[in-house]
């Protein structure tokens, strides 16, 4: 009897152990504490198109004119989009905690996929133009935050949030260098894109947004490149420029469509 009672106990313990193991495996399948249900969740691809004055960016040609009247070119255009957040009609938010480096010269970098996005109606998008302070105080990162991208300062630990390098024509008609390296914690810019309403479902799983350089240099602060063409975010003289660009980022991104 004693032996059998032990076996019974053993059976019980084994069952419980099995159950614990089974449930611990199950936990792994949950994402952020929500068990995905195939019908209500899916992946969403976000595609960013880069333009200047509504025209696609062409590189290395003096093709664009900003609101201040400066003709300019783009040799390099890269920036970080992070902590992409979708805001539902009921006001609830989902921050995907992602870090994406967009290189306008390489369309394969201009889209990213968010997993387990709830189907439904949404009213706004929010993200950071830049890298939050949690990840901005070390460059010991891989993926899109790998410092090999050149989007870091080597003398001042942190990410260059936005880089535009090219040239512009100054007041006397001379072509001059244009170098904008925008960053530091204080420059982290929150981009809010309010939208009347958009739906995400199995037929609408690609979200298109546009970034426009001319808008960045236009509103609400008009950026004139003359005498203002070289900024690395490390001088007191960069401060006004930093503040102006930081404010302008929100209006430089617009919602296009979901399809």
């Amino acid at each position: 009897m004693n032996i059998y009672s032990s076996i019974n106990k053993f059976a019980g313990i084994t069952l419980i152990t099995g159950a614990i193991l089974f449930s611990s495996c199950r936990t792994k399948d949950k994402i952020n504490g929500i068990t995905p249900e195939i019908k209500n969740y899916g992946s969403l691809t976000v595609k960013v198109s880069n333009e200047a004055g509504g025209q696609p960016i062409t590189f290395g040609t003096m093709s664009f004119t900003n609101a201040a009247g400066n003709k300019y070119s783009v040799d390099l255009l890269k920036y970080f989009v992070s902590n992409f957040t979708l805001i539902r009609n009921d006001g609830s938010e989902r921050n995907f905690g992602n870090y994406k480096l967009i290189d306008a010269s390489d369309t394969s970098t201009c889209s990213f996929t968010l997993d387990s996005v709830a189907n439904g109606s949404y009213k706004a998008i929010r993200f950071y133009l830049g890298v939050d302070s949690l990840h901005n105080h070390t460059v010991l990162n891989q993926g899109d935050l790998n410092p090999i991208s050149g989007m870091v300062w080597s003398w001042n630990t942190g990410y260059i949030f936005f880089k535009h390098e090219g040239s512009y024509i100054n007041d006397t008609g001379t072509s001059k260098i244009l170098l904008y390296h925008f960053g530091t914690d204080a420059a982290l810019s929150t981009v809010d894109i309010p939208i009347t309403q958009f739906d995400i479902n199995s037929n609408k799983k690609t979200l298109y947004i546009k970034f426009d350089l001319n808008s960045l240099y236009n509103a609400p602060n008009t950026i004139n490149f003359t005498g203002n063409n070289f900024h690395q975010s490390t001088e007191l003289s960069d401060r006004i420029w930093l503040g102006n660009l930081r404010t302008n980022f929100s209006s430089s991104f617009t919602f296009d469509k979901v399809q």
Partner: peptide, 16 residues
Amino acid sequence: GGAADLESQVIGPIQN
């Protein structure tokens, strides 16, 4: 103090 940790310091002199 521009390098925020010892690991991040490494890339400074290499690239300077």
